[in-house]
Amino acid sequence: MIPTALARKARRVRRGVPVLMYHLVSDEPVPASFSRWRVTPQVFRRQVETLRRLRFSTVTAGDLDRALRGERPLPPRPVHITFDDGYVDCLRHAAPILQGAGMTATMYVVAGLVGGRSRWMADEGVDLPLLDRAGLRELEQAGVECQSHSLTHPRLATRPDAEVADELVRSREVLEDVTGHPVTSLAYPHGSYDDRVRAIAGESGYTTAYTTQPGKALGSDDLLALPRVKVDGRDRHATFVARVVTGQHVGARVRGLVRTPEGVAR
């Protein structure tokens, strides 16, 4: 008999939904500490084309929320593409590529820094421009929905209850004012959360929340602690495909087994 843990892992690989976690899509150089979070437009275009050729269908945060609750079915081979932070270059580069492929995505926005810079990474020498209110609306018109990445991008698990609640409630208020639609999905900044933060997120009106824990999302998961599949800008294309298929970093082990319509992924 297959051990229960192994059976659960196999089910996640077979039936789970990959929620891809991107940050920056840009040609501009970045400090080495941020290189894993930057994907060039050329690489991003190839990844999107691979998803299209493999017949993946993009779904929104709301689509996935309802499906995981058993309220509606998903299309065959669903994938949820997400971006964290709200960088200007994602509007310049990622949105046109997605729109050209007929795909949607979700941008998790640091609501209190709209129109500002990535000041939470100042100590690492990373200073990137963030979309302003007009840019966020343009992003939505291109098919990329805006949801919450907190107000100022703190490590929520290290902050007191009142501050966590303020970060999450005010972020929703800002973004709902900008977009005109409900904001009920959250990506925890730095992946920082615990049971206390999770509870406050639910009390603050969020119905789904994403972590940085690796894996595909299943209906049996805690909807306020969903896993994602990290896209690393340093990876080869085979590793990207392997991550999408398995939810894990296993490119070396499956190279030669994962094939696209163009042949073996490289």
Rank of each mutant, 00 (worst) to 15 (best):
T211E: 00
V241D: 07
V88S: 06
G233H: 02
V169Y: 08
V264D: 12
V48F: 09
V245E: 14
A111N: 01
I97S: 00
P3R: 05
Q141W: 13
D127C: 06
G125M: 01
H181I: 12
H93Y: 13
R159W: 08
A10G: 07
P261A: 02
V25H: 07
V144T: 11
Q147P: 04
L136F: 04
V144N: 03
A122K: 13
R234D: 02
Q141K: 15
Q213S: 14
Q213Y: 13
F83C: 02
A7S: 13
V144P: 10
D235W: 15
G263A: 02
R11T: 12
H80P: 04
T40W: 09
V59P: 01
V231F: 11
A201C: 03
P73Y: 00
T152L: 10
L54S: 06
V231R: 12
R133H: 12
Y193N: 10
D195E: 15
G263C: 03
Q248S: 15
P129H: 03
P75Y: 00
G219K: 09
G143W: 02
E203N: 08
R72Y: 08
A217G: 10
A242N: 11
V126Y: 05
A95R: 02
D194L: 07
Q42E: 15
L6G: 10
P73R: 03
T179A: 10
G16E: 04
R243E: 06
A199D: 08
T179P: 04
A94Y: 01
D232A: 11
V126N: 03
H190S: 09
R11H: 14
A105F: 06
A95M: 06
P76Q: 09
M121Y: 13
R45Q: 13
V17Q: 05
F83S: 02
R117V: 10
I200G: 06
V231E: 11
H153W: 04
T207E: 14
L128W: 06
E203I: 11
V164N: 08
E203S: 08
V13R: 12
V241A: 10
V109G: 05
E203M: 10
F44P: 04
G205K: 01
D166H: 12
Q42G: 15
M1F: 13
V264E: 13
S118P: 00
P154Y: 02
A238P: 11
V110K: 03
K9A: 15
D232N: 13
G205N: 01
V183E: 03
V264M: 12
V30W: 03
A111I: 12
A201D: 04
R155E: 07
R196V: 01
R172W: 00
E124Q: 09
L257K: 12
T158H: 14
V17A: 05
G180T: 11
E163L: 07
S26T: 07
R133M: 11
H93S: 06
S171Q: 03
R117W: 06
D27L: 14
D195K: 14
S33G: 09
Y210Q: 14
H149E: 01
P76E: 11
G205Q: 01
L175M: 02
A32H: 08
T50I: 13
S118T: 09
V264L: 13
